[in-house]
Design a protein around this nucleic acid. Sequence first.
DNA 1: GTAGTCACG
DNA 2: ACGTACGTGACTACG
Length: 884
Amino acid sequence: MSTQPAKLLLIDGNSILYRAFFALPPLSNKQGQQTNAVYGFTLMLLKLLQEEKPTHLAVAFDKTKKNFRHEMYENYKGTRQKTPDELAEQFPMIRTLLQAFSIPVIEVDGYEADDIIGTLAKQAEAAELDTRIVSGDKDLLQLVSDKVHALVTRRGITDVDFYDAAAIKERYGGLEPNQIIDLKGLMGDNSDNIPGVPGVGEKTAIKLLNTRASVEEVLAHLDEVSGKKLRENLAEHHADAILSKQLATIVTDVPLDIDISRLVYGGYGVDTVVEVFRTLDFHSLIDKISEEISDSTAADNADVDEDGWTNIEYTRVTSPEQMDKVWRDLGGVTGCVFDFSDEDYHAANVCGVALATRDASFYISFEDELQLTHLQQWLKSAHDKVVFDIKSLAFALDAHGITIHSSGRWNDVKLAAYLLNPTDGEVELEEILARELNIQVPSIKKMAEHREAILCRIAQKLPDLYQHLGSALDAQTLDDLYRNIEMPLSFVLAKMEITGFHVNADRLRAFGDDLLGRIHQLTADIYADAGVEFNLNSPKQLGEILFEKLQLPAMKKTKTGYSTSADVLEKLAPYHEIVQKILDYRQLAKLQSTYVEGLLKVIRKETDRIHTRFHQALTATGRLSSSEPNLQNIPIRLEEGRRLRQVFEPTYDDWYILSADYSQVELRILAHLSGDEALIDAFRSGMDIHTRTASDVFEVAVEDVTALMRRQAKAVNFGIVYGISDFGLAQNLNIPQQEAKRFIEEYFRKFPGVKGYMDDIVQQAKQQGYVATLMNRRRYLPDIRSRNFHLRSFAERTAMNTPIQGTAADIIKLAMVQIDAALTKAQMDARMLLQVHDELIFECPADEMEDLTQLVREKMENAITLNVPLVVDISHGKTWYEAK
DNA sequence: GTAGTCACG
DNA sequence: ACGTACGTGACTACG
C-alpha cells in the first residue's frame, strides 16, 4: 500500500495547451502545430505525474458561452444547432489523450478553467488537502494559501516556477496572494483585456498596495497618493479599476457536479497510452514510458501502416465480368482515387481509377473503352463516394466524355479540410492524410512500379479520412456549408471551367500590336529623357536613374532600395516629364505582357476559348480565386485596359454576354451584421451610399456633397470594411494621418453601431479564437492574442474584415448553386462563365435574355435575407466590354 | 525563390 | 512607440 500523502493536482488545461502552442516555433502546417502543442502538453503531464505523484488529479478547460453569431446562424437556418465545444475543435486529440491517461476532464458551460480550479481549490482547502495548481497564467496566484500552492510555467513548455505565499511576497514586493487581484485591477492585463488604470504599471501598483491593501482603499484615500498625474488617472479611472479587479477575480462557486473525492487518481494503463501515442506519432514518448510495455503489444501494431503500401491486395479489372464483381463487392462508402498526373491541371489525362472500401480494392484501367461505360453507371449511382478534389476530376473526366453530377453522392475531403482550416491555403491529399490520420504516403514517383497499389491504398483510407473530417465539420457546425454550398458549387465551377470563355484572338493580337508600337515610342522617349538606355522593367535600375542621375526627391524606400511604385511616381510627376512617360509605359507594358501575351498563350487553338481554373479551397476568407489564366483581374478601371474586355465574346454570333453584380454588397453586409440604424436607413433609402456617407460625415446636405467629399467618404467606407486604421486611410487618400483620424472618428460618431460591431467582433475573436461568417464559415486568428503589436493588429483587422468579405463569398456561392439548378430545370441554353467575387458573367442566346435577367436577379437578390435589401445590377452586350 | 509592381474585387 | 489598410495572381528582374 502506498504511504504517500494525499496531494491534489489541478491543471489549467487551456493555458498549458496554449502555452505549448505559442512556445513552439511556427509551423507552416497548422494541424502539425496543434499536434505539437498536444505533444508539449503531454511532456508537461508526464513530468508532473512523475515529480508530483498526485493522489488526486483533474484537468479543467474553458467552456465559453454561446455567442451571438451562433444565434444569428440559427435565425438564418431556422433550426437549432448544437453549441460547438471550443477546445475539442482546436485540439481534438487532447481528449483522446486525457482519456487514455484516465484523467478526469472538467468543463462547465459558461466558465473558464480558472473558475473551476478556484472552486476545487477552495473545496480542497476546506478538506485540508494539499493542492498544487498548474497554469501558465499568473492570475491563479490569487488562490495560493497554506494548503494551495501554484506552479506557473516559465520559458519553454515544462519549466515552472513554484509559488507559495512567501514566494509571491518576494516576487511582488510584499503583496499577499489575495492582493493579486488588486494588482491586476490597477495595472490591468493586456493579454486578458483587463484595462486597469493608464499610467499604472507593476511598480506603481505595488507601491500603492503597500500603503493601502486594496484597490478600494487606495481609491478611498487618493489624497495620500503622491504625483498629480497619477492621482488624476486614479480618480478618472475609478470605475475601470474596480471593474478590472472584478474581471481579475476568479469565481470560486462554480456549480460542479463533481467533488474532490471523485478526483482520486489511480494511474493509467500503459498499453492504452502507448496506443494513443502511436496514433499521434509521439514516438519519442513511447520510448519514454515503454519499459513496462510487453513486446507483443508493440509488435502487433507496428507494421500495419509500414508495409501496406506495396503489399495491398487489389483486383485489376480487365473484363466486364470482373466489373460485375466490383459492383457486388463495393458495398458501403467507397474511396476513389483517379489516376492522372496533377502537374498540368488543364491537360490532365486520366488513365485509371482506384476504388476501395475497407475490404476490397480495385484498379480499373481507362484503356478499355468498354469499362468506361460501366464505370460511368457507377459514378452516377447512389453509392457513397469519397474523393479528393472533385472539381479536378470532373474537369479531367470531361475530356473522356464522362460527366459527373452532384446527385452521385460525392464527398470531397479537400473541401472538408479547407473549411476546417481555411488559412492553410491549398493542401495536397498527402498532407491531409498525414495531419489527420498520421498516414505517410510514399512518393509515387519514386515507387512508380507500385503506383496502382499505392493508389488503391490511398483509396482505402479515404472513407476513414472523410469520416474523421466529417465529424469535425459537424462539431463546428460547418456541415451545412459543406453539404449545401461548397459540395454542389464544385460541380457548378467544374462546368464553368469546362465551358470556358470564347475570345476573339485576332482582335487580341491587333490590340497587342497597337500596344507594342506605343511601348516602343515611349521607351525611346524615356531613354532620351534619361540620357541613357537601361532596363525599364528593373525597379532597381529605374530607381538609380530617377533618384541619383536625375536627383528627384526619394519619397519611400523598400527593403532593397528606392520605391518606384505608381503612388510614388504620381507625386514625382510634376518634377520631370520622364515620370509620366514611365507611368504610361508601366501601364501599357502591364497590358501587353500580362494580358495580351498572357492570354494569347492560353487560348485553345481548336476552339478559341480560354478555360480558367477556379480555386475553391484556397483563400482564407472563403472567396474563390482564379488562375491559369486569372480571369478575375481583367482590367476595367482605366479605359485603356478595359478595352481588353472587347475580345471576350459569346460563343455564337447571335448570343450575348450578361453581367450581374451585387451593388455594395460588403457595406450592406456590414449594415446587417452591425445593425447600425443609420447605415441600414441609408441602404433602405436607396441612395448612393458614398454620397450619403459624405453627407453624414461632413454634415452637409446631400445635394451639397462635392466630388471630393464623395471620394473621401468612399475611401472611408472601404477602410471600414478592411478594418480601418488612420495610417491606411491617410495613405490611400494622400492626406495627413491626423486628418484621416478625424474622418474615422466622425464616421464612428455618425455610425455608432458600426463602431460597436468592430469592437465586439475583435473582442469575440479574442475570446473564442476565431471569427465566422453569416453561414458559419470560420477563420481562426491565433495572432489575436499575440503580444506582438504588428501581428495582433493584423489579426484585429482580419477579424473585422473576414466576416464581411466571407459572408459576401457565402452569398454569391449560394446564388451560383441556385442559378445553376434553375438553369438546368428550365432547360435553358444560357451558361454561367465567370464569377468575379461580387459579379457573375453569363452568355446566352438573344431569346433567353429576358428570362435570364429575371432568373439571375431573383436568385442573387434573394439568396439570403438581410435587414437591408440586396440589389443586383444587370446589363448585357455583344462583348464583355459592352456588358457594363 | 523572393521582391517589386500592378491588375482585380 | 509600435507600423498597417482586406483578399487574390501574373509578370519581370535578380541573386
